[in-house]
Structures are given as structure tokens and as C-alpha cells.
Design a protein around this nucleic acid. Structure first.
Lengths: 244, 244
DNA sequence: CCCCATTGTTCCGTGTAACGGAACGTTATT
DNA sequence: AATAACGTTCCGTTACACGGAACAATGGGG
């Protein structure tokens, strides 16, 4: 285990995650490293082109090379590739914001989305993570997950304080989700989300599609339209994905 | 300069760039490293979650975590952020495939694009690099670049053998581009591209927008429509970008 | 069917380069 | 003016990354 490599990625993660340029000292403090160590590694990352330093303040930021490094990975990802036409279809059917996501640990990871042209826009962007049970797509995937209980318990522990989750309640909710084939989320009261799982060959979820719409312009008819659109699109995508 | 860190990123680049999973031995051969060194670093990258190993073949591939690492960088990039509404507008005006790009070394780096819904699709994806003078957007940016000559000479050297560039001819062409405010590219005879530079505060190009359309459905009227759309959208975006 | 080449992996002695701590010069803040 | 915090540089010590060789496991060719 190369310690310097481990630390270098910790540092690049810290720099990359922050939306504003970050101070060397704060990195050293956060990661509990010596300033000189952080400085040396940042300089290495700098000569490789992954970080740059603001001339005035001395703070560091990640460059587009960091983005380039991973950008090819997504475009080769089977779920993201297969999803593209179905995302477009779902967007066309509903006219709302649509997303593809996969499970990543206990979170959902948004791979791609098409944003509604209408005024209401949402904050989750491609590349962001959200605890799975907080999203409609995540619930749809958890409903197919054998050890959903373990995941829910870990997340309940993780979110303790900021958000209380009732694991038993959620588990029974997941049974209902599995029965009817889609999940809804009212995580944010101003937004209603409908998510469906994309069934993989192993019986678990290969990913999920979801539609998010402002509550105020979503009456009962619109909601049933979205639900049916999600269901048919997910099953058709699962068929396509199975044929690869 | 941390040698292990340097090598780790070399290795991750090699793994990430390949579209198929890659063999440990081929990495060691390509980078002229010892197999044991590559193995140790790959294992470090594996425990950090950036690469995974195929169970059957033993080959390595980059994971979505590699993508996550950089995904936030792009969304914070000023040109990419500012471009979003103008990309949409340009797409709406022309109905064709539109792209934003910036200079990255001697190449253009595609940041984002909206793909035409019509059948013809193109291979360049967001995150890919192309030698600047081979693209309409790149030419538009080079036209504002003081040391365009040096860039052209380096690229002519780099492409020697696969593609011959006449530096003097290109330089006079760039003057014409600067005069009329847009560039065209017939790099691929089946596709016509129109690119315009987004003027930055320093008089150089902050980035470029381009429209690519199949030659067969682009008559003279359509082409002038595209040219005007590119020009007005680029100037309006430059104004917006200047106000930040 | 055996052999040889190649794969990924493991082991180990050696030497280097990554490490922590302290001191440095600058720039803000009080 | 004094203090604090910043990024940077220096340096002696030793942990740990290194290269080379040997390893078991596959797979293809003769």
C-alpha cells in the first residue's frame, strides 16, 4: 500500500470536491497531514496538471485534466450507454426532468440527466451522490436488493441527527414498491419524483430511471402518465440491456 | 516529486483511457515499469476504489469513482456554466449538434454538447481532445491567439505522417477567420462545422461554440443561418461571461 | 499432450525518497 | 506594532517503495 499514493488521492479528492479553491492548510488539517507533505504532493499534482494554484491567494483548485481523467469512464459505462435513448424517450413522454442512476455503495450515483426546459430546476447534478432511500430511484433499486435492511441501517446511522429514518417502516414500504413496480419520493415537498428500477440479469437492479416534477404542476392525471411512462421505459430498457 | 504518485497517475490514465479492460503486463510495458511496481500501485488504486479487476481475465478497468473524482470540476467550470443556456439557444436556432470547447494545450477540449435528434451523430464526445486547427471551434480560437504560429508548428510536427498541415496556409486562413468572425471546417467531408470564439477579457478566446451538420442537408441558406446564429450567440455569451 | 510463453502474484534485501518537525519570509488581522 | 496564519523551504531519519527473481495458473502451438 503506497502511502503517498493514498494521500495524493485523498488530497485530490478534497481539492476536487470543494467548489471554491481550497487552502493548503485546511487540507492538512482535514486529513491530519503535515503541511510539508501536503505541499510536496500538491506540487507533484501540479506538475502533472491535475491541480493549479491561484496566483494571488495561493489556494489550490482541480483542473479540467482531473475531469478528463474520468470522462471516458462514464461514456463506456454500460448502463449510461444503454440509457441514452430511453432517457430521451422518457423526457419526451413527460416533459420533465429525467435521470439515470446506479447504486454506488449505499448511495445512488447520478450518471446523467435531461433537465426540464421549464423554470423549476433541481440541484442534483450528474456525478452527485445521495443516500439511496431518500430518492425515488434509490427506493426502486433497494426494493430488489436482498440485503436492503443492512443498507438502510447503515444509512440510518449515517444520517443520525440530520434526518431520522425508520428502518422497519421503510422496509414495508419497499415491499409495496416491489409489488407495484415503481417508487415515489416526497423528500422535497415542492417536488414529486417517480422512480423505476432497471432489472438486471441477476434479479437485482442494474440501475434506475426517475422523473422529477414540481408538485404544483402535477395533478393526478399527470402523475399516472409519469408512472406509466417510467414503468414501460424501464422494462424496455431492461430488455435492451439484457440483450448485450 | 513523489515518484509513486507520479506513476500512480500514469497508470490510472492508462487504465482510464483504454476503452477495454487492460492487462497489468501491457501497462508495465507501455510505461516501462516493473510488473511488481504496477501491481502494487494497482492494488492501492483498487483498495481506494478507482480501479477494479475482472475476475476471470485479471484485467483492470477504471471505475465510476474515477469519473466522480472529476465530475464536480466540470460543473464548476466558468465557461461550461455560462455556456449552458447559449448552447440550448444555438441548438434551438439551428436544430443541429452544438458544442462548447476550450483550449487545452494545443488541443481543443470538448466540455459539453447537445446532439442533434436527427440520425447523423458524431463521434467526438465531451471530454475528448482534438488538435485545435482540425476543428472549426479550434480555428476560431487560434485566430485570436498571439502565438498561433508556435501552436500550429507543434501540431504539424505531432501529426506528421498521418496528416500534413501547411502552417503558412493555415496562418493566412486564420487572418480571414479573424476578419469575418467565424471559422468553417471541412475536416470530414460529410460534415460541415461552423465555429465561433467566445471573446475573453484579455482579448484571447475564453472558449468556442460550434455547430456541426451533415453536408447533405446543409444548403447555402442553412449555412448562412448557422453562421449568423453562431456569431450572435458567441457575442452574447461573451458579454455574459464578461459580467461575472 | 507436452512444452513454452505469458499471465498476475508473492517474496525479499537494498537504497532512496517520502516523511515529520522546525524555521522561514509574507501577507492579513487585531 | 504585534500577532496570527499563510505557503514554502530545509534537513536528518527511517519507513517503505523499489527492482529483480521466483511463483502458480492459463492458454496456445507444435
Amino acid at each position: 500500500m503506497d502511502r503517498a499514493v493514498f494521500r495524493a488521492f485523498q488530497i485530490l479528492e478534497a481539492v476536487s470536491r470543494a467548489r471554491d479553491p481550497v487552502r493548503l492548510s485546511s487540507i492538512a488539517a482535514d486529513l491530519d497531514l503535515q503541511k510539508s507533505t501536503v505541499h510536496r504532493i500538491l506540487q507533484t499534482l501540479g506538475t502533472m496538471g491535475y491541480v493549479s494554484q491561484e496566483a494571488e491567494t495561493g489556494r489550490y483548485r482541480a483542473t479540467l485534466k482531473t475531469w478528463e481523467l474520468g470522462s471516458g469512464v462514464l461514456s463506456e459505462h454500460p448502463v449510461k450507454r444503454a440509457a441514452a435513448p430511453f432517457l430521451e424517450e422518457l423526457h419526451r413522454l413527460t416533459g420533465e426532468t429525467v435521470s439515470v442512476m446506479v447504486m454506488a455503495g449505499d448511495d445512488v450515483l447520478y450518471l446523467d440527466k435531461i433537465i426540464s426546459p421549464r423554470p423549476v430546476r433541481f440541484t442534483t447534478r450528474a456525478g452527485s451522490r445521495v443516500a439511496a432511500p431518500l430518492t425515488a430511484g434509490g427506493q426502486a433499486m433497494l426494493a430488489l436488493e436482498p440485503d436492503a435492511r443492512a443498507i438502510l441501517e447503515r444509512i440510518a446511522e449515517r444520517l443520525r441527527g440530520e434526518r431520522e429514518l425508520d428502518v422497519e417502516l421503510l422496509l414495508t414500504a419497499l415491499e409495496a414498491v416491489r409489488a407495484r413496480g415503481y417508487a415515489t419520493s416526497r423528500n422535497n415537498p415542492a417536488v414529486v419524483s417517480i422512480g423505476g428500477a432497471i432489472l438486471g440479469q441477476d434479479g437485482r437492479a442494474a440501475g434506475a430511471l426517475s422523473v422529477s416534477a414540481p408538485t404544483e404542476r402535477t395533478d393526478a392525471d399527470k402523475q399516472t402518465l409519469i408512472i406509466e411512462s417510467v414503468r414501460v421505459t424501464c422494462t424496455r430498457m431492461a430488455e435492451t440491456l439484457g440483450r448485450l
